[in-house]
């Protein structure tokens, strides 16, 4: 049995129905302890004060914001190449969550930036890229809404997602040309040389894991809804024909 079996809507619905309750539980036992640990059991940083705790919302949401788009890119490619309906519906489902995550990252960043840098917003490369990403999400969802035929909409949004990814990368590179940059370097990196201090590190990892699980859970729920909506459309179309 190949992995593509799960791209069959029926199989997908059966599987997710069984998996989802577990996922919900797992998300809860990851994200809640993560946030509590981060908020209450870590010391205040000497130069950041208690505002440092925004990191437990800010970094995971930013992580999801970017990776949700990557997931949409992969799902769109799968749809264009293999025509699996569930794949493109999952991309559609992820878009709204990605949008919200981007917004959370932007707002939590602004709230954090105010005490740190003395400003809510700066045209810093990282901040700007997120704003651009936010607009890409809006455009992607708007195109889904605007086109009536579901398969046409799936094709066109997938192509937009791919072309948009190229231009999003270009924008990311382009904003580096601006001479200013306020944002600190990446909070996490693989070689662990430039990490945040250890005492913040593990609760942050737990929070990111929790957000990933939350994302997967929400995407699966929304994909189920999209599959049902798609089936409804199919049934209506059949009704009209008969």
């Amino acid at each position: 049995m190949s992995i593509w079996e799960y791209a069959n809507p029926k199989k997908f619905m059966e599987t997710t129905e069984k998996v989802l309750p577990w996922l919900v539980g797992l998300t809860a036992v990851t994200i809640l302890p993560g946030l509590l640990w981060g908020f209450y059991l870590t010391p205040e940083a000497e130069n950041f004060g208690s505002s440092v705790k925004i990191i437990y919302i800010h970094v995971p949401s930013a992580f999801i914001a970017i990776n949700a788009w990557l997931m949409m890119l992969v799902a769109s490619l799968i749809w264009l190449v293999r025509r699996h309906h569930v794949s493109v519906l999952a991309a559609k489902a992820a878009a709204a969550i990605g949008t919200v995550m981007t917004l959370i990252a932007l707002i939590s960043g602004a709230v954090w930036g105010q005490p740190m840098w003395g400003t809510w917003w700066a045209w810093d490369p990282r901040l700007t890229s997120f704003l651009v990403l936010f607009i890409f999400y809006l455009g992607y969802m708007a195109l889904w809404e605007a086109i009536e035929s579901p398969d046409t909409a799936a094709d066109l949004t997938s192509i937009l997602c791919i072309v948009g990814s190229v231009f999003a990368l270009l924008s990311r590179y382009a904003v580096n040309f601006w001479p200013q940059g306020l944002h600190q370097d990446a909070s996490l990196s693989v070689d662990k040389a430039e990490h945040v201090a250890d005492v913040y590190y593990w609760p942050l990892i737990l929070c990111i894991a929790g957000f990933v699980l939350l994302f997967v859970t929400l995407v699966l729920y929304r994909t189920r809804t999209e599959v049902r909506a798609r089936r409804l459309k199919a049934l209506e179309a059949r009704e009209r024909m008969a």
């Binding site: 651009v132 607009i135 708007a142 195109l143 192509i159 937009l160 231009f167 999003a168």
Partner: peptide
């Protein structure tokens, strides 16, 4: 490209702007 995407959408002008503007950003910046 943007016009081709929205050609089937009635009164797609606004949607076209929303889709094309983010794609214009690198060109504008450089």
């Amino acid at each position: 490209f943007g016009a081709a995407l929205t050609v089937g959408v009635k009164r797609g002008g606004l949607l076209l702007s929303l889709l094309v503007l983010p794609l214009y950003m690198p060109t504008l910046l450089f």
